[in-house]
């Protein structure tokens, strides 16, 4: 499953779709970035409500396939710009992290 297909299947909003063809393998849910840095795997979908700039750094470091922002969390313009610059896929949904994880788990 690619990031673009995931976006279309779940009707997610594309905040930054830098690499739509990226393949997804598994997922991780978490907001404490020290945990995400240690636990998220390359290719994961990472679901979070954290909107701080450092999510882009952590996504880059862990090489996750995409960030999915839950609960309608909005990013500041400079965070979106950094995501574009670093080519990090960022999707967004109004759903909770629980619902998103359940739906993504069914799909992949």
């Amino acid at each position: 499953m690619t990031v673009e297909k995931l976006k279309n299947e779940l009707n997610l909003k594309a905040v930054c779709l830098a690499d739509p063809e990226r393949e997804i393998e598994g997922g991780y849910v978490g907001d404490l970035l020290s945990w995400v840095m240690g636990k998220a795997q390359s290719g994961n979908v990472w679901i979070t409500i954290m909107s701080n700039m450092n999510i882009i750094a952590v996504a880059s470091l862990t090489d996750v396939a995409c960030i999915v922002l839950a609960e309608g969390v909005q990013l500041d313009e400079n965070v979106v710009n950094t995501a574009k610059l670093k080519e990090i896929n960022v999707l967004q949904s109004d759903k909770s992290a629980f619902d998103l994880a359940a739906e993504i788990s069914d799909l992949i």
Binding site: L32, L33, S34, V36, N54, A57
Partner: peptide, 14 residues
């Protein structure tokens, strides 16, 4: 500290 510490939350000391 893990709970509410800046490093645990943001992963670094920015």
């Amino acid at each position: 500290r893990e709970a509410n510490g800046i490093i645990a939350t943001l992963g670094v000391f920015p």
